[in-house]
Amino acid sequence: MLRRILVWIAAIGAGVLLGLVSAWAALQFGGSSFTEHYGHWVHSRAAGSTAAGPYTRAIIARDGLLALSAREAVYFSLYEDDQGRPLSESCIYELNGRPLDARWWSVTLYADDNFLAQNTDNAHSMDASRAGNDAPWNVRISPVRGDATRWVSSREARRGFIVMLRVYNPQRDFRPSEQSLPVLTTISCAGEAS
């Protein structure tokens, strides 16, 4: 009898553990099932939507709590460089964009904990009011500004940081595509031969 009770306790314990691990795995690795990819940009059209499924809602809440619905704003995240490597503070990148069919856009850099990088450069983002939205634009993403006209600082962002594109009041004909979204190019990385 005691042995049977102990086995049941072990089975329930294993079930709880399996449930928690599988939920964590679904949130950690299952995001790609609910997202769209445009080149290396990742987008979840269900962000903030009341129609979001439970998995999408959980992932959005973890990565972008208080996101707006797609009618108001659309969000794109970049986790990799043009060669599929995690974004790194040790590299210099250039982000080249064209005018977007929207009222306003911004590009913001977040460390891998989803908060702004711990630096005091006051260059966490670039937006349409500074870069313009009527001509091609470019932004350098690097730990030091150098001679860049427009700069987003990656100092203290370490490895695995995120570049987030916000597109506010997208026009009705706004159709994201690999061609219409900004393109990230790796200029150089410390320790690599150029």
Partner: peptide, 8 residues
């Protein structure tokens, strides 16, 4: 497995 599904 039932417990795992419920907890998940």
């Amino acid at each position: 497995l039932i417990v795992a599904a419920l907890v998940h």
